[in-house]
């Protein structure tokens, strides 16, 4: 089997639950992306990682690992998913075109907060994920840090503090799209 020599790096990144995106600022990550994408590599790597119970998944312009979950972990997972849904909701309220390739700075969000009451409400709702932080900028910072940590966004310009949304953001969008609310259940959601 012709495993590419970058396999170790790929594993190191993906096993941390991060993503390898095609539009990363990090040249190395971009390189890894092209490596995975090359001819047969994806199939090789897929088989290779499958042996150690990691499933190499291909998203739209990004790669990640998935694993079979124990039922016990499910509750925690769902809570995690709630968090992401709230955050995504917030970000999409901030800008409806918030998607892969989008650029923004935390101050953009702060400015918008003053204009958009809905955004403010949603941000306040995010307080519970911010570990005791109360100020808006702190909450935003926390959220952005979380996003950055999980490689959904990346800081592009340290001076202007500009972030770029990575292709992996699509993962979160897909997460929400895959939630299927049947007609009956719709009315059960408390408004």
């Amino acid at each position: 089997m012709n495993i590419p020599k970058q396999t170790a790096s790929i594993f190191e990144i993906l096993s941390r639950g991060q993503f390898i995106c095609s539009n990363s600022n990090d040249e190395f990550i971009r390189k890894l992306y092209t490596v995975i994408e090359e001819d047969q590599n994806f199939d090789y790597l897929y088989d290779y990682f499958l042996n150690i119970s990691f499933i190499l998944e291909k998203g739209n312009e990004y790669y990640y690992f998935s694993r079979l979950e124990n039922k016990i972990d499910l509750e925690r997972k769902i809570e995690q998913a709630f968090k992401w849904i709230d955050i995504l909701d917030f970000l999409k309220t901030f800008d409806s075109s918030f998607c892969s390739g989008f650029r923004f700075t935390p101050s953009d969000i702060l400015v918008k907060l003053n204009l958009d009451a809905e955004l403010k409400t949603k941000l306040e709702a995010l307080k519970r994920y911010s570990a005791g932080k109360d100020k808006f900028n702190e909450i935003i910072e926390k959220i952005l840090n979380d996003l950055e940590k999980d490689k959904f966004i990346e800081i592009e310009n340290l001076i202007s503090h500009e972030y770029k949304v990575l292709a992996s953001f699509n993962y979160l969008e897909q997460l929400i799209i895959s939630i299927n609310i049947s007609e009956d259940a719709k009315h059960e959601i408390p408004e």
Partner: peptide, 17 residues
């Protein structure tokens, strides 16, 4: 328009400032 925004953002994601 939203699609356009998304498409442009996606396109712009390829390029640096």
């Amino acid at each position: 328009y939203r699609e356009l925004q998304e498409a442009i953002n996606k396109f712009n994601g390829n390029f640096h400032t």
